[in-house]
């Protein structure tokens, strides 16, 4: 186990290093002078010189990379070309809303996937199974941003029940925060739920067909008892794993959903940075999301290996 843990951590760090190279290269692959184009009409020789020096763009590229990496490791991601605000601070302000939305979407996804997947497996081949399969087939093809736009159309524009976008902090006004959260969370959650339903169903089916379950039923134990104590207990391990992996995918989907609902998260920040050519902010946002993504995958693998010893035996790739 220790060997496997070390191997996986090493791989993740290596991937993170690769990510940092790509993120660093981003700014240097931009055609033209990124500082100049970011400044646009605000250009003055003094401001330009200050930003170039602050970003270290006047030194050899390898020196710049290691310098940048060294500072990034300590949390210094440079300053925004546009606002002069430290990038780490700007990211810090956006992490909360993104995490809240991810959490909300995951809850919605599980609220859909657990009942749908379990019922679909138990009633395999019958109407509920058919309905759940149709739902997951539709959900996986559904463009999340379109679904969000339709929800806004119906619940904000036509019915006027919920705001069409925006954000309120839970600390300030929990009721308003919930109203703002509901539509974006449902938008991102339905697609997640559709994907998870399929997984819940297949791990339930596997658990249902296990020998000990047939034995338990043959002994005449009540079906509900068998379901709770013999089936669900085995089915939850893969479900948790996939849910963890799903968090990473969810993060990607949330970037777009944030833009649909003007949600002040990392995705919105990254897009604003693209549009205003604020490369340090874009670098910071991409680096942060990729790091979280890698960390989630690592944690899921480790949890899975801990729960299922077969994984770590044949895990050399």
């Amino acid at each position: 186990m220790a060997r496997y843990v070390a191997l996986r951590i090493g791989q993740s760090l290596l991937a993170l290093l690769g990510v940092s190279i790509i993120v660093f290269a981003l700014m240097h692959l931009v055609p033209g002078d990124p500082v100049r184009s970011a400044l646009g009409t605000r250009f003055t020789p003094e401001l330009y010189a200050a930003l170039v020096e602050r970003a270290g763009l006047d030194r050899p590229i390898l020196v710049q990379y290691f310098d940048w990496l060294g500072r990034a490791v300590t949390g210094d991601l440079g300053v925004s070309f546009r606002t002069g605000q430290p990038v780490a601070l700007a990211l810090g302000q956006r992490v909360g809303p993104t995490a809240l939305l991810a959490f909300g979407a995951l809850i919605v996804g599980l609220l859909i996937a657990l009942p749908a997947g379990i019922v679909s497996a138990v009633k395999q081949g019958k109407a509920p199974d058919y309905a759940a399969n149709t739902f997951s087939q539709i959900g996986v093809s559904l463009p999340d941003f379109w679904f969000g736009i339709l929800l806004i159309l119906v619940f904000a524009r036509m019915l006027g029940w919920l705001p069409p976008g925006g954000y309120a902090s839970f600390a300030d006004d929990p009721a308003a925060a919930l109203r703002y959260l509901l539509l974006p969370a449902v938008t991102a959650g339905v697609v997640t739920g559709a994907i998870l339903t399929r997984f819940v169903r297949s791990s339930m089916l596997e658990a249902l067909n296990a020998e000990h379950v047939r034995l338990a039923r043959a002994k005449g134990l009540p079906w509900r008892y068998v379901l709770r104590h013999h089936v669900l207990r085995n089915a939850w391990i893969p479900i948790i794993t996939v849910t963890g992996l799903q968090l990473g995918t969810l993060l990607g989907g949330i970037i777009v959903v944030e833009i649909v609902f003007s949600w002040p998260g990392i995705g919105r920040l990254a897009l604003d940075a693209v549009q205003t050519r604020d490369y340090p902010v874009l670098q910071g946002a991409v680096l942060l999301v990729a790091a979280v993504f890698l960390l989630l995958n690592l944690l899921v693998d480790l949890v899975y290996a801990r729960l299922d010893p077969r994984i770590r035996v044949g895990a050399s790739t």
């Binding site: 791989q11 290596l14 991937a15 993170l16 690769g18 990510v19 190279i21 790509i22 993120v23 981003l26 692959l29 931009v30 055609p31 990473g248 995918t249 993060l251 990607g252 989907g253 970037i255 777009v256 995705g267 990254a270 897009l271 940075a273 693209v274 050519r277 490369y279 874009l282 991409v286 999301v289 990729a290 993504f293 890698l294 790739t317």
Partner: peptide, 25 residues
Amino acid sequence: WMRAMDVLFAFPVILLAIALVAVLG
């Protein structure tokens, strides 16, 4: 090669695409 592919896998698809378009225009 496979480690290089791992690196590309470390980005959510949409974010990597956004970053690439930011560079390419």
